[in-house]
């Protein structure tokens, strides 16, 4: 066995898995950071992204179109949901209400998807130019997974640039720190909240479209991934964008190498990591203790 090749291939496996996890964890942490809402519907929005992606490919024949259209549709759905339902609950300052409403949305989304697309799994083919493998020290590695790593890296970089280098990003960070002050300065805070919620949903949808060729689009596909995403957000620190990147990569590495070397503990490894980090840093790696 070529050890270097094996390690490189497994590391790439972890990075590709981390890329998918990042899309969902990033949206979750952005929404929590600015709105203090734990969005239980995020897994459902990830699933909706996969199904809209499937339909886009079926109608247009283009996987690339689905990468644009699915996040757009799901972003709009998320924006409407925030405006119509969540915005009415801000005055209550009751986190329990958000939990119930987003949990309800998750169930409604799952049932709506079942009614529209049916219970059968739906296959989203990989475009021809992303088919095939590269050999890394005699270990095959799919080109599509390299594409996932590229997409994840690009999304992380763009989001970081958006948050750090643009005026809109500055407003987002300001609202996260002190919404009342930003409002007093004449900024429409509710529009910022709606925009961030829609952006978070769109990122989850993008993750869903990118996952579909690996998993098919199927009912329940958001359930497992949302648990992983919550663990990532806790590890990285609630509301920390950089924390979500580090958390996604860490969790993916633990899952990949953990299931290889400690098969019987595969499920527990991620939670052991979370517990270890919380013991050392109760607010997560880059989060603040509140």
């Amino acid at each position: 066995m070529n050890v270097a090749g094996f390690l490189a291939a497994q590391s790439l496996n972890a990075l590709s898995q981390g890329a998918i996890l990042f899309f969902i964890a990033c949206g979750l942490t952005l929404i929590f950071g600015i709105m203090r809402i734990i969005n239980f519907a995020h897994g459902g929005l990830f699933m909706l992204g996969a199904y809209v992606g499937y339909s886009t490919v079926a109608w247009t024949g283009s996987f690339w179109a689905s990468l644009l259209f699915a996040p757009l549709v799901v972003g709009v759905v998320g924006g409407i949901f925030e405006k119509v339902l969540l915005a009415r609950l801000y005055a209550r300052q009751d986190s329990g209400a958000y939990l119930m409403v987003t949990f309800g949305l998750a169930i409604i989304l799952a049932e709506t998807i079942r009614l529209i697309w049916g219970p059968q799994p739906l296959s989203v083919p990989i475009p021809d130019r992303l088919r095939g493998i590269v050999l890394i020290g005699n270990q095959p590695f799919p080109i599509y997974r390299l594409f996932l790593i590229g997409m994840g890296s690009a999304a992380a970089l763009l989001t970081w640039q958006f948050l750090e280098r643009t005026r809109a990003g500055l407003l987002v960070r300001a609202v996260a720190q002190n919404a009342e002050m930003v409002h007093a300065l004449g900024t429409d805070v509710s529009a910022v909240r709606t925009g961030v919620f829609a952006l978070g949903c769109a990122m989850a949808a993008l993750g869903g479209v990118l996952s579909a060729p690996l998993l098919t689009a199927f009912l329940g596909m958001g359930t497992n991934v949302i648990i992983d995403a919550f663990v990532i957000v806790i590890i990285g620190g609630m509301g920390s964008f950089l924390g979500s990147i580090i958390g996604s990569v860490l969790v993916a590495f633990v899952q990949v190498f953990g299931s290889y070397y400690f098969e019987d503990l595969a499920l527990a490894m991620m939670y052991l990591l979370m517990l270890a980090i919380l013991i050392v840093r109760p607010g997560g790696m880059l989060g603040k203790e509140e």
Binding site: M1, F6, A9, Q10, N13, S16, Q17, Q139, P140, R145, L214, L215, M221, T223, N224, V225, Q255, V256, F257, S259, Y260, A266, L267
Partner: peptide, 17 residues
């Protein structure tokens, strides 16, 4: 593989090896 497992990359590596 754990119930509900979705990423099989590690297991595929094991099969190959």
């Amino acid at each position: 593989t754990p119930v509900g497992n979705k990423d099989y990359s590690t297991y595929i590596t094991k099969l190959i090896q």
